[in-house]
Design a protein around this nucleic acid. Structure first.
Lengths: 332, 332
DNA sequence: TTGTAGGCGTTATCAC
DNA sequence: GTGATAACGCCTACAA
């Protein structure tokens, strides 16, 4: 499709009988232009169906109205939520978002970042993979989202993972649970490992609690199978999970073991999902404040662009959504 | 953050001691450049950390390496899957994609489309809202995805909705079901209405079948409540749903009514989701070929760019994923 | 094979 | 308040 030449500012300047500069000023709504001329220019623009060429504009002003977003997996509901919120805020502020998927691949990630830089994005929001080298363009503001890694002090925003788990343990403890398991997919993942550490730390401070971390595979199926094996040997009164996948797998294991929630056992999931609110019993969860995470990421980006608050790290609090899967500990 | 001037082609030309044109040719890997010079240029580029400015390049050649994607809702797993697949294909082909969310709002949609055009995207993939005016830039290839509307012949790709439902009805009929309901959220939505029509048509051709369309509200909760009311009065042997939301709501209703799947009743959902495979019983579904939809959308886009096959419409077949929620009709 | 120069559509800086 | 004119960084005839 050979694109016809689009109508440019020059065309409308000619049509309105003004100079190119004046046309530009009028179209950009700059103060220094007479009301009558402005009218004429705008009219001509509408007549000709003028559409500002943002790529030219961006080239000229060197501050594009585009942000970049690097997400590990676009088919993951949690990341989709993050994306949805960031895109939404950006749009509200008149920015576009270039979305790239890194598929949890560190090599790829570096290439994706380069692509973003080649497009001269104004800044990058990034959920880094575990293998990210950390290398980035110091000229382009970069906000790390959700996953903080023990690296150079990049500005970042994430859940207070330790606090979240502590909240969960408190909640279960107050319901009378003394025998609690944490199901975690892999302690080699930074966030879930933090949650496991938080779990152990929280348990340490409680009287008469028997807390145990069950480390399982990365899929829901593996989680279910391995948890089933554990449940054949012993049984807690409550299970807390450290991720959405773990929640799903645990749910399956409990159904396989014909344990009723919350009468036989309480289940407190991690990360909310629409179906959790609908199923019977609906699933209580530790929910991340995704909107707030996105809002803080945006705020950090603005600060970074204004070169304030370099390297600040923001941690946000989780909240517990109480539904039907959690209840008082059974008295045995 | 006042961005320092980035290193340009001019800088590396100077550093390599060649002319600007040669530098450009070398960096673009054009044939007409000596091996030694090319080497020197590439070396200089690496030394200085040169990064091609794509916005300048795009401006010059007027064929950006960016596509636009308009999606109604970024928090919907089905659309996320579509997006993931399109983004993935685009990336594989060296293109970026600008993602915009229309929130099912037709006014917004027009504005979003304008944004994309302002960025001079190479083409637009779009899942249109019900209220889309259909207006678009004839110069920019537009591929309609998932939702075909009875409009001007835009190239489009979608599920064969009628065929999908026919497949589902055949499947249930063969299992012995004669009393089948279709739960559909709203017949004012084009796709789900097609599914309802397909359901009625498919049932017409079957001996001794009693088929009924239950139209419910737009949320899973409403679906559950309204279906519960219906189930109090009568009960089919199988329920087919017309969307993911409807599936979720139906599931809740069945759990509320304490109907066991598949012994009391069979449930065949629409659109697959990870949790459906994990829960007990796992949910059988009519699944859309999302990868193929994305691949076809891409192919249509390429054809459109080459100005072939204008206005072609592609329909793809659904397939049934048999899991535990469907089984032979109970003999009463 | 290499260098030169014009232009893509804007914005911004000047004179007027 | 308005109008030339010079960038922005790159690509690409075309000339050398």
């Amino acid at each position: 499709m050979a694109r016809a030449r689009a109508v440019t500012i020059k065309d409308i300047a000619a049509a309105a009988g003004v100079s190119l500069g004046t046309a530009s000023n009028a179209l950009s709504d700059r103060p220094s232009v007479g009301a009558d001329l402005k009218e004429r220019v705008l009219e001509a623009a509408k007549q000709l169906g003028y559409r500002r060429n943002l790529v030219a504009a961006n080239l000229r002003r060197n501050t594009p109205r585009t942000f970049g977003l690097c997400i590990p997996a676009l088919d993951n509901p949690f990341f989709c939520d993050i994306m949805q919120n960031i895109v939404s805020i950006a749009e509200r502020n008149g920015f576009d978002v270039l979305v790239l998927e890194t598929r949890e691949d560190g090599r790829d990630e570096a290439a994706k970042l380069e692509t973003l830089y080649a497009n001269r994005v104004r800044g990058v929001f990034m959920v880094p993979t575990a293998t990210w080298s950390g290398s980035h363009d110091p000229e382009t503001p970069l906000i790390v989202v959700d996953r903080i890694r023990p690296t150079e002090g990049l500005p970042s925003v994430a859940l207070d993972n330790v606090g979240a788990v502590k909240l969960a343990v408190d909640y279960l403890y107050d319901l009378g649970h003394r025998d609690i398991w944490l199901v975690v997919n892999s302690r080699s993942i930074w966030n879930t490992n933090l949650r496991a550490e938080g779990f152990e730390a929280a348990a340490l401070g409680k009287d008469g609690i028997r807390a145990r971390v069950i480390e399982v595979g990365l899929t829901a199926r593996e989680t279910a199978d391995q948890l089933n094996a554990e449940l054949a040997l012993a049984r807690p009164t409550a299970i807390l999970t450290a991720s959405g996948i773990a929640t799903l797998g645990t749910l399956r294991a409990l159904q396989d073991a014909r344990l009723a929630m919350p009468d036989d056992i309480s289940l407190l999931g991690f990360d909310d999902a629409p179906w959790m609110d609908v199923l019977r019993p609906s699933i209580s969860v530790v929910a991340q404040p995704i909107e707030e995470i996105a809002a803080q990421a945006w705020a950090l980006m603005q600060a970074q662009i204004a070169s304030e608050g370099n390297g600040r790290h923001v941690e946000l609090d989780a909240r517990i959504i109480t539904r039907e899967s959690t209840g008082p500990a059974p008295t045995r």
